[in-house]
């Protein structure tokens, strides 16, 4: 697995370090955010290089795309002038933090350096039992079967984030110009494509890189696009249907986890023969729940209470 250093690796690493430094020291926050999105896209190149295509897809869609959009819209809500800032803090304090950081880097570097060169990890165990997982993509197998517990709790984290965001207030309209004709035309063109790609990624996750998270993130980008284009949601969907969609991922996962328990089987231990169906069911619901959750988090608060005024909600 150890190959020689190539020019590509060196250029990529130098670019990543350069971008990380410059996005964090850019005076203008808008510039910093754009650099952050670039950084995320380059990082997904690094994931491809390190043979982690699942992670690359998630990074491009979530790490660069959704996070970048979230920061940009927050920047819009923060308002103008204060987005630029000289490097603050006294010199000695920055020096202190810098030397502590350097010390930490030395420690981490030493720890990484002294790792054994050939580590088996848990790979052997995973590949040995892939036949029992119900899927062919090992990453999906780990996420939805072997370590489904992590994914269940991850859905709880997403749900908690929405609860936190909603408890802070109603979503407010970001200050944006009215959408032009070209944006609306683009939305009409892209939305069906986004739904298609999302479904394809979900289905692909069984055998190839893809799955609920990548599909959900792509679908969420559709919601973000609709919100940016000023498309009003259907008010009747802003009540309990929205809340049901938000809770559905965690709820269904939990129900399946408990329902398969019994006899000698533990929590989340799917009965033999049922794995593929159960994983597909969970992933399907998870895709929608993740998409709606990310879209709601982009809106930045609960839908406005007055019916009909619910511009900032989620549905088409």
């Amino acid at each position: 697995m150890i190959s020689a250093l190539s020019l590509f690796d060196l250029v990529l690493i130098i670019l990543l370090l350069w971008l990380a430094w410059h996005l964090l020291s850019a005076r203008d926050l808008f510039r910093a955010t754009v650099l952050f999105i670039t950084y995320g896209l380059l990082m997904s190149l690094a994931w491809v290089r390190l043979k982690a295509p699942d992670v690359a897809l998630a990074e491009a869609a979530i790490g660069a795309g959704i996070t970048g959009a979230l920061v940009l819209v927050a920047l819009g809500r923060f308002g103008e002038a204060e987005s630029d800032e000289a490097e603050p803090g006294s010199l000695w304090l920055r020096g202190l933090v810098a030397s502590a950081a350097l010390g930490l880097f030395a420690l981490l570097g030493w720890a990484v350096w002294s790792l054994p060169t050939e580590m088996a990890g848990l790979k052997a165990q995973v590949f040995e039992r892939m036949g029992e997982s119900g899927v062919e993509n090992p990453v999906t197998g780990v996420l939805l079967n072997f370590r489904a517990w992590d994914t269940l709790l991850e859905m709880a984290v997403l749900f908690l984030a929405v609860l936190g965001a909603w408890s802070l207030g109603e979503a407010e309209e970001p200050s944006m110009p009215a959408p032009g004709e070209s944006l609306l035309a683009l939305v009409r063109l892209l939305i069906p494509l986004i739904v298609l790609v999302s479904g394809y990624l979900l289905w692909l996750g069984e055998t190839a890189p893809g799955g609920a998270f990548q599909g959900g993130a792509v679908l969420a980008s559709g919601f973000v696009l609709l919100l940016l284009a000023g498309v009003r949601p259907i008010p009747s969907l802003m009540g309990w249907p929205l809340r049901a969609a938000l809770g559905s991922g965690f709820a269904l996962f939990l129900v399946v986890a408990v329902a398969v328990t019994g006899g000698s089987r533990m929590l989340l231990e799917y009965p033999p023969g049922w794995e593929k169906g159960l994983i597909l069911l969970i992933e399907g619901v998870l895709t929608l729940a993740i998409a709606v959750t990310l879209g709601v988090l982009f809106a930045g608060g609960r839908p406005p209470a007055s019916p009909g005024a619910g511009k900032r909600g989620e549905k088409r």
Partner: peptide, 19 residues
């Protein structure tokens, strides 16, 4: 092939980070 377990952990990490 690389170890899929850290890949799954990082995927989870990316989603937790965005929330």
């Amino acid at each position: 092939r690389p170890d899929p377990v850290p890949h799954a952990m990082v995927l989870t990490g990316i989603v937790v980070a965005v929330s």
